[in-house]
Amino acid sequence: MSSLLMLLGFTIGIILGNFPSVLRPRPAWWRWAVVILTSLTIVLALWPPLGGTFNSVVLMGRSYEKQAVPLKARIDHSTKSYNAERDEFSVVMRDFSSEPREFPVVFTGREPAEISSAKVVIVNVRLGDSDTDFRGESVVAVDPSVTIGFVPALAERIRNVYFHVPMAWIGFLAYFLTMMYSVRYLRKRQPSDDIKAAAAAGLGTAFTVLATITGMVWAKFNWGAFWSWDPRQTSIFVLLMIYGAYFALRGALSDDDDKRARLSAVYSIFGFVSAIFLVYIIPRIMEGLHPGAAKSGDMGPLVDGSIDPIVLSLYTLSLMSFTLIYFWLYSITVRSRFVAMELDEAQFS
């Protein structure tokens, strides 16, 4: 079900990206729509607070650092009580997990002013001495409209999922399009297909570089090092090498347009076979740090649908808007190269 939603977002992005025609200037409404969607993506990726459950408080509380977790919960106002002797305020909260749990949360001092009239709050909660002793620290948000699910292993770093994963997917989409146009060039020998293939390869490389950079930052803060030759890091590195080689080959064949188009088309098809193994097979057969690696016990939360529904919808939105950006860039690149080709022909004729 969840992969269906993502696929739908991706498909809408691809269809809308090609609408009305990728070889025409983009209509004004289209450009505005993309600008608004992308801004919305960035805002929704960075602004909503995280909201965890009592389970995540316990999990993080048992860890060495005993970190505080933003807990999203409904307040039961009838249970408010203030213990003057210990100067503690306590209230029962009910979290939003699939099997909701209720616990009293204890604050030092009197009732925090923000929560006096709130129905739902997000408060930083730290685990006390036992697994049912919850200590409220500070109020993060009151009656939030959108919250992102709290994942103990990721915390705030989950926001990178809206940037890193779409870049990698779109990069691969671009390489797939390179392969498609290369096949079409070999069948029909239209120079326009060669231009499209090269443009898609260039943009695919740009998006893959962005995926690598966002991934490196993520890896530094999640795994402790920018680069550790995880199978997926290896494969994205080699993916970049394949298309680096593709452009090196095009450079070496710059004297003859047909030969360059033909041989680089052959190499891009050949390289794509390697890319399929590198992206889809090797990271799942070998053990690694990425989700979905061998022996990690799952396919990766985005693919098997175990992820928070809000995170999934935001991911779908960001996938769609970055796909649209890709097709916008692609349209500009291809049209400018067509103009360059026509100018060349006009000069020589």
Binding site: M241, I242, G244, A245, A248, F270, G271, S274
Partner: peptide, 12 residues
């Protein structure tokens, strides 16, 4: 060119 083109294909 030969090693440049071959290495990424050989890596899998």
């Amino acid at each position: 060119l030969f090693p440049v083109l071959s290495f990424p294909i050989m890596l899998p």
